[in-house]
Amino acid sequence: MNLSIGQVLAFAAAALSVTVAGLGSAKGVGLAGQTSAGVSTENPEVNSKLMVLQILPGTQGIYGFLIAVIILVNTGALTGSIKAVELMQGFAFLAAVIPVAVVGCLSAIYQAKVASAGMLMVGQHPEMSGKAITMTVMVETYAVLALLASFLMVNAIRL
């Protein structure tokens, strides 16, 4: 199989999108999980409330995966016959994944910090879990915007 540079760049874009955003989410969920374990030892009854907070930084990884899949769908990689991708289109794919990869990665970590702080709050005041979740979701907004920007750019590349 002969691949053009453009096609390889498209693959690299998909790979970066999953990898970078996923790393951020893994780090974020891990961080939040540590806090969750700590708070649960003090106050086991709030554990289920902490679970929601722990999952929240995980969505960025899903967004990264989403963009990767859309790139693979649009390039025809999933159906088995890869379409021709010009060199500049390949670079355009790379540019398009920057928002979801970079913002996804960093926002997952920042979100995990808010989630961790929220968990400490819930440990002391279980009735405030709604507020803790709201605070954490605030950070998510920017990941959603990045996802949308990446999505629009990827979809704008007509092969």
């Binding site: 989403l66 907004t141 949308l148 999505f151």
Partner: peptide, 11 residues
């Protein structure tokens, strides 16, 4: 902010 409706649905 309501664009999240689109983003989450897409996901």
């Amino acid at each position: 902010s309501y664009m999240r409706l689109f983003g989450m649905g897409l996901a």
